[in-house]
Computed example of a mutant assay.
Amino acid sequence: MLMSNTDRPAKLHYLTNGFRVLSPGDHVVCAVTGRRIPLDELRYWNATRQEAYADAQATAQVLAPQ
């Protein structure tokens, strides 16, 4: 039986210039906001931390000095 990737989180391995899909799905979750990010809209991530971010503002929150 074929399983749909709709409404299923993907598991990704984040690379410096892209990402590799380890487990299929249609979205990932932002590490800062908890928002769902459709894979076709994913633009921000951190390869070292292996985290996805919803937008530049969420990314800046992680990178800002404490």
Rank of each mutant, 00 (worst) to 15 (best):
P24I: 01
V28D: 03
L39M: 04
V21K: 02
K11M: 12
P24S: 02
P24L: 02
H27F: 14
C30S: 09
R35T: 01
A47K: 12
T16C: 00
T16Q: 12
F19V: 01
L12D: 04
C30V: 01
R35P: 00
L39G: 09
D40Y: 09
D26W: 01
A47W: 05
A47R: 05
L15T: 12
Y44H: 14
V32T: 13
Y44P: 01
Y14T: 06
W45R: 07
D40L: 00
Y14C: 07
K11D: 13
A31W: 10
L15D: 15
A31D: 12
C30M: 02
Y14E: 10
V32Q: 13
L39F: 07
G25A: 00
V28G: 05
N46S: 14
T16F: 08
C30W: 03
L15H: 11
K11S: 14
F19H: 15
R43I: 00
A31S: 14
S23H: 11
R43Y: 10
G18E: 10
I37C: 08
H27N: 08
D26Q: 05
H27R: 14
G34D: 01
Y44S: 10
K11Y: 13
V21Q: 12
T16A: 15
R43Q: 15
D40W: 03
E41G: 00
V21E: 12
L12M: 08
D40E: 13
T16M: 04
I37E: 05
A31H: 14
R35S: 02
R36A: 11
L15G: 11
G34V: 03
D26V: 02
A31K: 11
L22Q: 11
S23K: 13
A31F: 13
S23D: 14
G34E: 04
S23L: 14
Y14W: 10
V21G: 00
A31C: 07
L42M: 10
A31E: 10
P38Q: 07
H27S: 07
Y14K: 08
G25R: 05
V32N: 12
R35H: 05
D26Y: 06
A47C: 09
N17F: 08
L22P: 03
R35F: 03
T16I: 11
I37S: 11
L15Q: 14
G25Y: 01
A47G: 00
P24M: 00
C30L: 08
G25V: 02
R43A: 13
L42G: 06
L12C: 07
A47D: 15
V28H: 05
G34A: 05
R20E: 14
H27M: 06
Y44D: 08
E41L: 07
T16E: 15
V29L: 05
D40A: 08
G18D: 06
A47M: 07
L15E: 15
G34C: 05
T33C: 13
V32G: 03
L39D: 09
L39Q: 06
E41P: 00
D40R: 03
V29T: 15
G25N: 07
R36K: 14
V29I: 15
G18Q: 06
T33L: 04
W45N: 08
V32F: 11
F19N: 12
L22K: 03
C30H: 06
V28K: 00
F19T: 06
G34T: 01
F19L: 12
L42V: 05
L39R: 04
W45K: 09
H27P: 01
V21S: 04
R35C: 04
